[in-house]
Design a protein around this nucleic acid. Sequence first.
DNA 1: CTCCAGGTGGCGA
DNA 2: TCGCCACATGGA
Length: 312
Amino acid sequence: MFYKSLIVFDKKIDLKASLFSGQSFLWIIIDSDGQYYATVISDTVIIIRQLSDYEIEVMSSSHSINGYIISDFMYKYFSVDVDVKSILSDYFSYRYPELFCAIQGFLSIKVLRQDPYETLITFMCAQGIGMHLIRKQVSMITQAYGEKKSITLSGKEIILHTFPTPEKLSAVDPLLLSTCTNNNRIRATNIVLAAQAVADGKIDLKALANPAIPLADLRNTLCQNRGIGFKIADCIALFGLGRFDAFPIDTHVKQYLATWFNSTTALRPLTPARYLLLDAEARTFLNPELAGYAGHILFHCWRKEIKKLQSF
DNA sequence: CTCCAGGTGGCGA
DNA sequence: TCGCCACATGGA
């Protein structure tokens, strides 16, 4: 039933941290040891396990995804092509030696190249609430409106759900959907509108994936939609459109910019104007081409080492 | 009980 | 433009 393959990377990856750090809520832990993770990508069920720092084992219900063979897809999905060493320049290690030391343990986290549409919807669920509730919302949306997939591993049956298509979500009554969005009707309405826009082609994610589009233009285009501000737009760009230059600024990033980089701007309330100011500030000490990738590393170092948060 | 969590949009000054 | 508030829930 499953196609099994061993995938060897030339760059170290931390599977669990990567899968659960990049807003990739559709990955779930399916065994008590926390070794196997499962999801559905484009109708293909994926089960994955880390064998070593450089190897993963993949079991999939199809030998390919979107025309790519599994190993090629995974290589791209985990952005193994990105050289993490180039993310933080020599200047950075010289300027912030203690911080550079602290983030060493987080360099094996990968920013995934996830599906743009799924990223768009899931990040619309992430507004001013905890990670636990965000995951819950996405999980409920897939269970209520996604396609059911059943798999068997070691004799145990596991139920997974695909992410509902734009067409499916756009036809849902917002009041009904709000039971999946923390009872927030505004958010539910915005999600339905966004799904409609994707279905109609008003949001053309294929076109927006063009890397030649300036980041500011991309952000402004995404912000035309209700429920998407600068932060969510940057998240869609970073995690869904492979724009590693996009630097989302949330409450945690704001905190570490103030503490680690002495930004006085970050001490004040985050208005749109200050968002852009902080964005520009960050690019003075991070490689602008990979600012978002670096930000993701710093983000998780801040949460784990300073805030002592358990969940990814 | 209060505060905060991967924010956004409406409002008045 | 800026500050304040509603939106909503749950964990610390």
